[in-house]
């Protein structure tokens, strides 16, 4: 499977998912691009736990920047953009190993899945906190706060 086909599929899937969560039309194209960029980083990082973290960090930062530019809530972009990274394969593999009675593989796959999810959550939290604090600085300078 070539990487560009995966990225195109990622783009299409994100667009379809945005329709599912009724994302406003203006935000759909940019959300799909952000999602593909994030997934590209994840593929580059060889699908590791660190890959989850860095890809989500990129997605979080890009979403916050877009939110500032378009004067919309960052959640709007983030909800759909993060979906391709959610470790669905890990969950399925864990269940398959449990059903097959392969406890060792189930444990290691399950741990990796959980770590991936934590990495995503941590990265998005970091980007949000980063931007929430950046916003406050110019306000203080103006004295309008």
């Amino acid at each position: 499977m070539s990487w560009w086909m995966q990225l195109i599929a990622c783009c299409v899937a994100t667009i379809a998912y945005s329709a599912l969560v009724r994302l406003p039309r203006k935000a759909i194209a940019i959300t799909a691009l952000i999602a593909s960029a994030g997934y590209g980083i994840y593929l580059l990082m060889d699908q590791s736990t660190m890959g989850y973290f860095l890809a989500s960090l990129l997605i979080g930062v890009l979403c916050e920047i877009c939110a500032r530019i378009m004067k919309r809530a960052a959640t709007l972009f983030m909800t759909a953009a993060i979906i391709p990274l959610v470790p669905g394969v890990g969950l399925y593999r864990t269940m398959r190993y449990i059903v097959e009675g392969n406890a060792q593989m189930a444990l290691s796959t399950g741990t990796a899945t959980l770590l991936g999810l934590c990495g995503i959550a941590l990265a998005l939290t970091v980007s949000t906190v980063l931007f929430a604090n950046l916003r406050r600085i110019p306000k203080k300078k103006d004295g309008t706060c």
Binding site: I82, I120, T125, T128
Partner: peptide, 25 residues
């Protein structure tokens, strides 16, 4: 594998976990 994983991905609580951790922090 890709069929099941692909179908459940939109159902998994990706953003809910994030929001939960963010709220806690």
């Amino acid at each position: 594998e890709p069929v099941i994983s692909g179908s459940i991905m939109p159902l998994l609580p990706g953003l809910a976990t994030t929001n939960g951790i963010r709220d806690t922090i």
